[in-house]
Design a protein around this nucleic acid. Structure first.
Length: 421
RNA sequence: GCCCCCAUCGACUAGCGGCCCAGGUCACGGCCCUUUCAAGGCCGUAGCGCGGGUUCGAAUCCCGCUGGGGGCACCA
């Protein structure tokens, strides 16, 4: 029987990367086993609900390609059913009323245990289990009651979630048993930590899927990186397409120890992905990203600039600062130009006669100029680079000049020569 | 305080008793290439938390300790 799993975030804000990780592992498991992956919004606590959150969560999942089966469901929609079930437990003597709330009786001897999908046997002493509130005095079911009831109603077969739910599991098992429901299997994933060993949070850097997207991370790379946090295929392979992940993923190879999120490794992997794209694909991805982030730059020029940066930037977000000089005026720092007024004037003059105005000719001309002036390539090109791109770090100089065009290049050289004088 | 979980290079991990004086990747250091920055190539530094067992043999199994994390709500 194919498994049915679910991802059940609460709509309290943007989708946290830890949530993405949990969603990914559920999704991979479902797809690998040809089962179903459901999305359920746990909005029982209306006071903490953020209006936009549900749509943002779904948008993030769509961006990452984590498609879910069936409609998105809402915990709140099942309040009535939850109350009826709680009522039933009272009638059966398995629960009782307490100051207006309904509490479920928990055993106080022995232990409750389960064979965790990724941790093996876990036993929890029953004396630590309190009679938990299933329905509040105001009539709303609690999370710990609604969640297992919904798992039951939805026929969830495998509950794969974060390790912070380990201590909830025995309670939920007891509830399900009281209800007469069959139990799902449980698997608890390790948390994702920040570099300081604490829970990954805002002060460590980007934490929501939306932020990673904004910074120019490529969804397939982010997914690949996240898969490597707690899962591995063997002792050397680290690059996997979505399809390969689906094919190779097994819970058997998921580890139980917490992992520190390494932004540098993610960035490196992102670069590997971006560089592996064909020039046309890359140009499309880059143009799409800039459009989405609100840049209104000439798309034709963006596409022509794409090959100049593909090898050089690891995230799409670096493009504006790295190649923005093609679209906006530059203001080179004085010290980058110091003492190079004659050189810049000579360069301007030499480039004025280049025809056709393309990289090969431009390079030959500037190298010839450097040689005439007795300058090493670096000595000659850095000031020119600064004058034209506004920085001492840029895409290839000759290609950049070609894209900028003769008129703008000469204007920038003239302006910089004046500033350097 | 009590309960639960976890423990291999700085980081992610491979290792499920001999193939390991521990392998891969990121980061870091050096060299090469080079118009900057990257990318790439080559080389290198670096690890089984500690103590007891079990075994002919332990990174691998067991126990304890230590350390880290999570949980103990009419929050999710």
């Amino acid at each position: 029987m194919p498994p049915i799993v679910r991802f059940a975030p609460s709509p309290t804000g943007l989708l946290h990367i830890g949530g993405v990780h949990t969603a990914l592992f559920n999704w991979l498991y479902a797809r690998h086993e040809a089962g179903e992956f459901r999305l359920r919004i746990e909005n029982t606590d209306t006071s903490r609900e953020v209006a936009e959150a549900t749509e943002q969560i779904q948008e993030s999942l769509r961006w990452l390609g984590l498609d879910w089966d069936g409609p998105t469901t809402f915990q709140l929609d099942r309040m009535q059913r939850c109350k009826e079930e709680a009522r039933r437990l009272v009638d059966e003597g398995k629960a009782y009323e307490d100051v207006g709330a309904i509490r479920i009786r928990m055993p106080d001897e022995g232990s409750t245990g389960w064979d965790d999908l990724i941790r093996g046997r876990i036993e929890y002493p029953n004396e630590k289990l309190e009679d938990l509130v299933a329905v509040r005095a105001d009539g709303r079911p609690t999370y710990n009651f609604a969640s297992p009831v919904e798992d039951w109603l939805d026929g969830i077969t495998h509950v794969i979630r974060g390790e912070d739910h380990i201590s909830n599991t025995p309670k939920q098992i007891r509830i399900l048993q009281a209800l007469g429901a069959s139990l799902p299997r449980y698997g608890h994933l390790a948390n994702i930590l920040g570099p300081d060993g604490r829970k990954l949070s805002k002060r460590h850097g980007a934490v929501s899927a939306e932020e990673f997207r904004k910074q120019g991370y490529y969804a397939p790379a982010l997914l690949n990186y996240l898969a490597l946090l707690g899962w591995s295929y063997d002792d050397r392979r680290e690059l996997f397409t979505r399809e390969e992940l689906v094919e190779l993923f097994t819970l058997e190879r998921v580890g139980a120890s917490p992992a520190v999120f390494d932004y540098q490794k993610l960035t490196h992997l992102n670069g590997v992905y971006l560089r592996s794209l064909s020039p046309a694909e890359y140009a499309g991805v880059l143009a799409g990203y800039l459009r989405e982030q609100g840049y209104e730059w000439n798309e034709e020029l963006v596409r022509r600039a794409a090959p100049l940066v593909q090898e050089k930037i690891a995230t799409l977000g670096e493009f504006p600062s790295f190649a923005g000089f093609l679209f906006e005026p530059v203001e080179p720092a004085r010290e980058l130009l110091d003492g190079s007024a004659p050189l810049l004037s000579d360069a301007r003059e030499a480039l004025g006669g280049v025809d056709p105005f393309e990289a090969g000719q431009i390079e030959a001309t500037l190298r010839g100029l450097a040689e005439r002036l007795g300058l090493k390539p670096r000595q000659a090109f850095q000031p020119i680079r600064a004058a034209v791109t506004g920085s001492n770090v840029s895409p290839g100089l000759f290609e950049s000049i070609e894209l900028l065009g003769r008129e703008e290049t000469l204007a920038r050289l003239a302006r910089a020569a004046a500033a350097a004088a």
